[in-house]
Amino acid sequence: MKKLNICIDIDGTVTDPYYFMPYFNKYFDKDLGPEDCHTCKLEDLYEVSLEEVIDFYLKEGYDMHLNAPVLEGVNEILWDLYETHNLYFVTARNKKMEKVTLDWMKANNMPPIKVHSLGSYYKVDKAKELKCDLFIEDNPENTKQLAQEGIKVLLIDTNYNKDLNLKNVIRVNSWYDIKNIIDKMSF
Rank of each mutant, 00 (worst) to 15 (best):
Y121M: 13
E149G: 04
K144L: 10
I151V: 14
Q145S: 12
L155M: 11
K114R: 14
N75C: 14
R93M: 06
K128W: 03
L164D: 01
K162W: 09
N165F: 07
Q148M: 14
K144E: 15
I136Y: 01
W104L: 04
A147S: 14
T84A: 07
N159V: 09
K167T: 12
K128G: 07
P112G: 09
L71S: 06
Y160S: 08
I151S: 01
V100N: 09
K144H: 08
L118G: 01
K99C: 01
P69Y: 07
L130E: 04
A107I: 05
N67R: 13
N139S: 14
Q145V: 02
V153L: 07
I151L: 06
I77T: 15
A107N: 14
V74W: 08
V70Q: 01
G61C: 08
K59L: 12
N67Y: 04
E60F: 05
N94E: 12
D125N: 15
E83L: 15
Q145M: 14
M97P: 00
D63M: 09
H65I: 14
C132E: 00
P69M: 13
S117K: 03
G150M: 11
K152M: 12
V90R: 00
A147I: 08
L81A: 11
L155S: 00
D163S: 14
A92V: 11
D63K: 13
L154P: 01
V153D: 02
K123M: 01
I151C: 03
V90D: 00
L134Y: 02
T84I: 12
L154I: 08
N159A: 13
L146F: 01
P111L: 07
D163R: 10
P69S: 10
K96E: 10
K96C: 01
M64Q: 06
T91I: 06
E98L: 09
A127R: 00
T91Y: 02
A127D: 01
E60Q: 15
G119K: 09
W104K: 01
L102G: 00
E141R: 12
D80N: 15
D163G: 14
S120E: 10
Q148A: 12
Q145G: 03
N108K: 12
L102R: 12
P112L: 11
